[in-house]
C-alpha cells in the first residue's frame, strides 16, 4: 500500500505546489497507516531529490518527451499507481491536475474529490475529505466509497515541511500511449507565483479608474512579493489580463493575505476569495460590503493609501 503524489514540473521545474502535495501526501500516508510515500515526476526535471526532504520515501521519474496530455499522463500515473499499490493518489488542483483527476478516477476505479482543502480523515476504512462548494460559500465533506481514492489538492492548504532528507530519483519504465494532442505554444508569466499558488495577493477593481493607474498596485505587489489579481469588470474591459480575474466566475484562491483596493466586495467576488486567511480592504466607501468580510479595513482613497502602504512596507523591511 502507498500514497502516490504526481509532482508537476512545468518547464522541468518543480513548483511549490508539488512540495506542498508531497508533504500533504506524507501526512495522508500516516493517516491511512502506510510508510510508503511515492512521488512521481514525468519528463525531464531538475532537483527532484528534494521531494525526499518534503516527505517522499521514493522518488520516481518516467522519461517522456512532449507536452502535457491528460490522456497520456493519466495512463502513466495509473501504471505507476498499480506498480506502487497506491491506495491514494494526489494531484494538484491546477490546470493540469484538474484535467487528470476525473480521468484517474475512471482508470483507477477510485472515488475522486476535487480541490480538497484539509487533510482527509480515515475511519472504519473510509476516507472523508472536505472541499469548498458554492464557490467557497460553504464546505462539503465527501465520503469515498471505493477502496481507492484520488484527490486534487487546493493550493496553499498546508505549507511544505522538511520532514526527511533528499532521495535519489529512480527511473521507472511504463508504456506510453500515443498522444493525439500537439502542444504548439506555451506562455507562462515569468517570475511571478501563479495566482492559485500565491500566498500573498494584491487585487484591485473598478476603483482604479483606468489601466494606466495600476502602477501603484504593481509596486505594492512587488514590495510584498505578491501576485496581482483583479475583479471581473476590470478583466472584462481589458484593463487587466483574464487570468487575473478572481471570484465565482474566475480563479478561486486562498492566499494567506488578500489585499483588495477599490473592489466593492460583491457576493460573486467574495465567493472566490473569502477563504483567504487574512483580508485587507481599502475602499473610500465605508458602506462597501467588502468590509463585512475583511479582517483589516482602511476607509480612504486608495490613490493616497496604497503608495503609503508600499512606503511603510519598505520602511519595515529596511529595519
Amino acid at each position: 500500500m502507498s500514497v502516490l503524489i504526481y509532482a508537476e514540473s512545468p518547464g522541468g521545474q518543480l513548483k511549490k505546489a508539488a512540495y506542498e502535495a508531497v508533504t500533504f501526501g506524507h501526512k495522508v500516508a500516516k493517516i491511512i497507516g502506510t510508510p510508503h510515500v511515492v512521488a512521481l515526476t514525468i519528463g525531464k526535471v531538475e532537483g527532484s531529490e528534494v521531494l525526499g526532504k518534503y516527505g517522499a520515501t521514493k522518488v520516481l521519474n518516467v522519461a517522456h518527451e512532449g507536452g502535457f496530455d491528460s490522456q497520456v499522463h493519466t495512463s502513466i500515473i495509473a501504471q505507476v499507481a498499480a506498480k506502487a499499490g497506491s491506495k491514494v493518489v494526489i494531484v494538484n488542483h491546477s490546470a493540469d491536475g484538474k484535467s487528470l483527476l476525473g480521468r484517474l478516477s475512471v482508470k483507477l476505479k477510485a472515488g475522486s474529490v476535487s480541490g480538497i482543502n484539509a487533510l482527509p480523515t480515515f475511519e472504519g476504512g473510509k476516507l472523508r475529505a472536505t472541499k469548498g462548494v458554492f464557490s467557497s460559500k460553504a464546505f462539503a465533506t465527501y465520503e469515498v466509497k471505493t477502496p481507492k481514492a484520488v484527490f486534487s489538492l487546493m493550493g496553499n492548504t498546508l505549507p511544505p515541511e522538511e520532514v526527511g532528507s533528499d532521495i535519489a530519483p529512480e527511473n521507472i519504465a511504463v508504456t506510453i500511449p500515443k498522444s493525439r494532442i500537439v502542444v504548439i505554444k506555451e506562455d507562462r508569466a515569468k517570475g511571478t507565483v501563479p495566482l492559485p499558488e500565491a500566498e500573498l495577493v494584491v487585487s484591485a477593481g473598478r476603483g482604479m479608474k483606468g489601466p494606466e493607474n495600476w502602477g501603484i498596485i504593481e509596486e505594492l505587489a512587488e514590495e510584498l512579493g505578491a501576485t496581482t489579481a483583479c475583479s471581473r469588470p476590470v478583466a472584462d474591459v481589458g484593463w487587466r489580463p483574464h487570468h487575473e480575474h478572481v471570484g465565482q466566475t474566475g480563479v478561486a484562491i486562498r492566499p494567506n493575505l488578500y489585499i483588495a483596493a477599490g473592489i466593492s466586495g460583491a457576493i460573486q467576488h467574495l465567493a472566490g476569495v473569502n477563504s483567504s486567511k487574512v483580508i485587507v480592504v481599502i475602499n473610500k466607501d465605508p458602506e462597501a460590503p467588502f468590509f463585512k468580510a475583511a479582517d483589516y479595513g482602511v476607509v480612504a482613497d486608495l490613490f493616497d493609501v496604497v503608495p503609503r502602504l508600499t512606503a511603510a512596507l519598505k520602511k519595515y523591511k529596511a529595519q
Binding site: 478516477s105 476505479k109 477510485a110 472515488g111 475522486s112 474529490v113 472523508r128 472536505t130 462548494v133 467557497s136 460559500k137 460553504a138 464546505f139 462539503a140 465533506t141 465527501y142 465520503e143 469515498v144 466509497k145 471505493t146 473569502n274 477563504s275 480592504v281 468590509f291 463585512k292 468580510a293 475583511a294 479582517d295 483589516y296 479595513g297 482602511v298 476607509v299 480612504a300 493616497d304 493609501v305 503609503r308 502602504l309 512606503a311 511603510a312 520602511k315 519595515y316
Partner: peptide
C-alpha cells in the same frame, strides 16, 4: 456513486473588521 456528500459546513463568521487609520500605514 463512488463518492457522496455526508456533511456541509458554513465558514465561521468573520469577527468585525478592524479599521486602521489611513494616516498610519506603519
Amino acid at each position: 456513486d463512488p463518492v457522496s456528500i455526508v456533511q456541509y459546513t458554513l465558514p465561521a463568521p468573520k469577527s468585525a473588521v478592524k479599521l486602521v487609520d489611513p494616516e498610519d500605514m506603519d
